[in-house]
Write a protein that binds this DNA or RNA. Structure first.
Lengths: 344, 344
DNA sequence: TTGTATGCGTTATCAC
DNA sequence: GTGATAACGCATACAA
């Protein structure tokens, strides 16, 4: 691999002259620049980004950590963040961190290989985040509830997830449902746990009894699990023990719907169902599924702007937190479609 | 930010001793190691990955470039590749390159910021790949047909895409369909173009005339486009001008199916449909859609192994190409489900 | 306009 | 067992 040294040697000029020529510095004459460029091409010279980063004491990289790049929860966010960063010419790289593999993410964080990180994976422990966030690499954490993050360079962006679970349950109750089943998703998902808590709170608030046998556990949060778990619910619907189902994710709901239809149960006439997250799939089925939107994109735009602010030093954690807290976008919105019947 | 220099100064020992202690070298005594570790903690020392890379002349990073991290085409591949790399403790980072943003990918490539790259994005031009691939950074290109890549460190992994389009068209013909419509996807997608060519070839081979008005252009390859474009096909189905539709992607097919059902057209009784790629969504709908699987995962396992081989110098491009070419996994497989009727 | 010297943070090669 | 020193590839302040 050729370096600027080789170019300098070939041309009989100094290394710094080559460097400046390559970076189009006004200090260098056009003739020299041309010669340098030609020599570079001739020697097959390519820049060494690592050396540049070391010298500049900056990587120009933002790390985006996700546990699953498939989920719209992530991809929607990605798009928004990428747009904002692009405008500032900051590079975004994605790293996955899940139960199978977390090493890369931890290595990138612990070795300061980025100028900032957005962490959407729940597999990076609070302690770890706390330990490594610093002035040169602030860390934004999403989707966890912990208030315990004390580090000045850690920003915790959290919705009131329980509240959202509460809201959609309330929505069902207000439309006359009294026997509402809940289908939990993946056991390791904190998200579905919060929704479950919200579900419980809502029942309590309206004076409805919590029926243990109306709460179902899926082994995951996806379509297949929804389909499978709903098999165990069918009977209770037929015997009128259930008039609505709250699925912890839209994917679960779509899978469930499929099973219900196969079993000849009409949605929403025989049973109402709701999902969670407003994934695209929820509107693709018949009937389209009523769900709740968390305004993830708007939130992420704010996050991106805040992150950029922290990177260039124009914002502190305090500014950001203050701004986020009083922000209206943190309210979720129920998307009414065809899967809920008014039973009053 | 504290460096090993600071630790050395604090402890009154040399920089090299600190470095060796931190890397648990057998040359250093346990006492010293302990002192160093404590000092590091006290000073909040974190490693600088950039400096390490520069010194080692290696990044330990494989770049995975995709135009869209949502697609199963990508995520399936990702999983496989990640598994293989994990076993060798190689880090994988994902970068998106699409019509909106290509700068980051190009910067990473042109600045040698990885030890190898897998490129699934069609937005990185052949020339660019050719120009920057080198001994220290081989590039594997997927999903393009160009044979023009001459660089010794570029490996082009290409299925016979046209052949696949041909096969599934043949499948329809053999089941008695004679009036087969084709729905093209995104204009910029080379993939759907190949399928189109395959479709044409198949018609020709069976002596069927190509009806221009049975070929429809969608403005993209997703659900919404399938739904929308199918609106323009309805009439021709009712008037029996069409007995089957070949959608260029499963997403298109699912969107199309939705529209067909809404319009009261029965699939497959009134019209048969097929998709392409065996995306999970294609089995989630009613009726499940017959499609074709390209065995992407098996291919990617081979790719990953080949890539690792090239990184450690145990394999050359020649070895790899030879191996890939005679490989049975490059045959696709038709997944029969409920969306095609036998009309013979 | 060009060159010299220095430094970025780390590892590695020798001495001692 | 430890320390000095060079090297990795590049950028920059300053001198010429």
């Amino acid at each position: 691999m050729a370096t600027i040294k080789d170019i300098a040697k070939l041309l009989g000029i100094s290394v710094s002259a080559v460097s400046m020529a390559l970076n189009d510095s006004p200090e260098i004459g056009d003739k020299t620049k041309k010669r340098v460029r030609e020599a570079a091409k001739q020697l097959n010279y390519v820049k060494n980004g690592t050396a540049i980063d070391l010298q500049r004491q900056k990587t120009n990289i933002v790390l985006f950590i996700t546990d699953n790049p498939t989920r719209p929860y992530f991809t929607d966010s990605l798009q928004v963040v990428q747009n904002e960063l692009m405008m500032k010419d900051i590079d975004l790289v994605i790293i996955t961190a899940n139960n199978k593999h977390i090493g890369t993410a931890e290595r990138f964080i612990s070795e300061n290989r980025a100028d900032a990180v957005i962490c959407m994976s729940k597999f990076i422990p609070d302690d770890f985040v706390n330990m490594y966030a610093n002035k040169n690499m602030p860390i934004f954490v999403l989707g966890r509830k912990s208030d315990l993050i004390a580090n000045e360079f850690v920003v915790n962006v959290a919705l009131d997830y329980e509240r959202v679970g509460e809201d959609i349950t309330e929505y069902l109750i207000q439309r006359g449902h009294r026997k509402i089943a809940f289908v939990r998703g993946s056991k390791t998902s904190v998200g579905t746990k919060y929704r479950y808590e919200g579900y419980l709170r809502s029942l309590k608030r309206f004076g409805l009894k919590v029926e243990k046998n109306l709460i179902f556990e899926a082994n995951g949060s996806d379509y297949d699990q929804g389909y499978h778990t709903t098999g165990k619910i069918i009977e209770k619907i037929i015997s009128k023990q259930i008039d609505a189902i709250f699925y912890a994710t839209d994917d679960l709901a779509v899978g469930g719907l499929q099973k219900l239809l196969e079993k000849g149960i009409s949605v929403p006439d025989d049973v109402s169902i709701v999902g969670y997250n407003n994934y695209p799939i929820s509107k693709m089925v018949t009937p389209p599924i009523t769900t709740v939107d968390l305004h993830q994109q708007k939130i992420m735009r704010r996050v991106a702007k805040a992150l950029i602010g922290m990177m260039d030093g124009s914002k502190t954690k305090e500014d950001i937190v203050k701004r986020l807290q009083k922000d209206a976008i943190f309210h979720s919105e129920i998307i009414e479609r065809g899967s809920v019947k008014n039973r009053e």
